[in-house]
Amino acid sequence: MSDKPKKLIEKGKRLDGRKVDELRPIKMEAGVLKRADGSCYMELGGNKVIAAVYGPRAVHPRHLQEATQVIIRYRYDMASFSVEDRKRPGPDRRSVEISKVSREAIEPSIIKEYFPRSTIDIFVEILQADAGTRTVGINAASVALADAGIPMRGLVSSCAVGKVDGQIVLDLTGEEDNYGEADMPIAMTQDGKITLLQMDGHLTKEEFALAIELAKQGCKAIYEVQRNALVAKYKGGSYV
């Protein structure tokens, strides 16, 4: 990768010309996979992610099933061509951990009692990565679940905040993540309950409070995109 640039923020503008509280351009489409029960494709800046949902369906192996509720399985996977240097394909320590925290971020939104003894399988495939892939994965998975007709309390939206050049910024790019002081991915339900919070780096108490506020704004903006993606699927129909 390139060397550290002298300044990551100049005159209130970041390297890619964004303001500190601005998200990268987003593209989102629901129902892109024909053979999945629900699916979603999402782009956030340089991130390209596809999420597929299968189920509720019978659990294999059988001993994993629960008598009173559905189980959720989440697989976060990076394609070998998703990063600059080829990534060795298959699950590794990092993607296993991300799968776990992403599942826990999504799980509280699903009403699990409707489908005892079954499973919902979520597959998130990172086609191109540019910092914040787990947040994009969670956003796409949430829309794919709704697209699959699974009962939920609401959507989950997610974005990253961080500290770059001493300033709190929204939605870090790869460079800002590498050379910045902190990176903090957050996921929340639409009523503002936080379901994922990780932090790499250091923030003071005041900075942390500021970061949370900024993340709330970011998630709100992403929620609107998620909603539009679902509504657009049936545009041209007699309702909308």
């Binding site: 009403i111 709704a146 309390r153 309702y239």
Partner: peptide, 22 residues
């Protein structure tokens, strides 16, 4: 009362008619 699934609202009976699902 909140919608729990993605679908069409039947205002008369206050239910959501699903567009997908098993």
């Amino acid at each position: 009362v909140y919608a729990s699934i993605y679908g069409i609202l039947d205002q008369k009976e206050l239910r959501v008619i699903p567009l997908s699902g098993k």
